[in-house]
Nucleic acid binder design. Structure first.
Length: 245
DNA sequence: AGCACA
C-alpha cells in the first residue's frame, strides 16, 4: 500500500529559490529573464534570475528571492499563471542557489560537472550577476523593508488605483501608465496576450512608462483591462485606461 | 519532460 505518512509533494521543501518550467521556449532568454523579474518582484526582492537555452534547460528558470516567504507566496499566487500564453509551473527549487550559498558561506565550487571544459585557473565573475537588469540595484539597504503585502493577488478585482475615473470612452486600444521605465514590450505581451482578441503592444520610446495595447474590439480590451488593472510590474501597479480616440 | 549557477 501507499505510505501516506510522508508528503511526497516536491513543493514542501522551503527554499528562497523557485523553479519554473513550462515556460514558452520561443521567448528570448534576455526578455524572459526581464519579464520574470518584472512579474515576480511584486512578491519581494529578487536576488537573481537564471535561465538557460541548452536543450536540457530551456523552458525553465530559477528566480532567487531574498527570503523564502517571498518564494512561497510567488508559488501560491503565480503557479499556473498564463505567461506568454503558457501556464507557468512553479515549485521550490531542489537545491540552494549559488548566490545564496555564497552569502551563506556554504558555497562549495562544483568541480566534477558534465562540463569537461573546466578551466582551473580562470576566475569567473563574482556575485555581481545580472540579476538586477530591470534596474533594481541589488545593494539597496532599505528596499526590502517595503516588501509588498501578499494581499495583492495577480487579479486585484476590487483594488482600484488612485486616479480619477478614466473619462475616455471604451476603445479597443488600451493606454497603460505607471510602468517602470525599463519595461520591455514583451513583458506586457506576456501579460496581455493571454486575453482573447489581443493584437499587439506598442511602446513609445520617447515616452517611457507608458504603452498602448491593442485588442480586436472593445469588449475584449475591457476584459483585459479589468483583469490586469493594478497588476504590479516590479513595484508599480499598472494603470490602465482606454486610449483616447 | 527537463532542477542550474555558463
Amino acid at each position: 500500500m501507499e505510505m501516506q505518512e510522508a508528503n511526497q509533494r516536491p513543493e514542501v521543501t522551503p527554499n528562497q529559490t523557485i523553479y519554473i518550467n513550462n515556460l514558452n521556449e520561443k521567448v528570448k532568454l534576455d526578455e524572459l529573464k526581464k519579464s520574470l523579474n518584472a512579474v515576480f518582484s511584486q512578491f519581494g526582492k529578487i536576488v537573481e534570475v537564471q535561465a538557460f537555452k541548452t536543450l536540457k534547460h530551456k523552458g525553465q528558470a530559477w528566480v532567487v528571492f531574498e527570503n523564502a516567504d517571498s518564494a512561497s507566496s510567488a508559488i501560491s499566487k503565480m503557479n499556473e499563471f498564463p505567461f506568454y500564453d503558457k501556464p507557468m509551473r512553479i515549485q521550490f527549487a531542489k537545491t540552494k542557489s549559488d548566490v545564496v550559498a555564497k552569502a551563506d558561506g556554504t558555497f562549495v565550487p562544483r568541480e566534477k560537472r558534465k562540463r569537461h571544459e573546466e578551466k582551473g585557473g580562470k576566475k569567473k565573475k563574482e556575485q555581481h550577476h545580472d540579476a538586477t537588469q530591470m534596474g533594481m540595484p541589488s545593494g539597496y539597504p532599505g528596499l526590502y523593508g517595503a516588501a509588498p503585502p501578499l494581499s495583492q493577488v495577480p487579479y486585484p478585482g476590487g483594488a482600484k488605483p488612485m486616479l480619477p475615473e478614466a473619462p475616455a470612452p471604451p476603445n479597443s486600444i488600451l493606454f497603460v501608465q505607471n510602468l517602470p521605465h525599463e519595461t520591455a514590450p514583451m513583458i506586457l505581451q506576456a501579460l496581455f496576450s493571454q486575453y482573447p482578441g489581443f493584437k499587439e503592444v506598442r511602446m513609445v520610446e520617447a515616452k517611457p512608462g507608458i504603452a498602448f495595447v491593442e485588442f480586436a474590439d472593445e469588449m475584449q480590451s475591457t476584459v483585459a483591462m479589468h483583469a490586469l488593472q493594478g497588476f504590479r510590474i516590479q513595484q508599480n501597479p499598472m494603470l490602465i485606461t482606454y486610449a483616447k480616440k
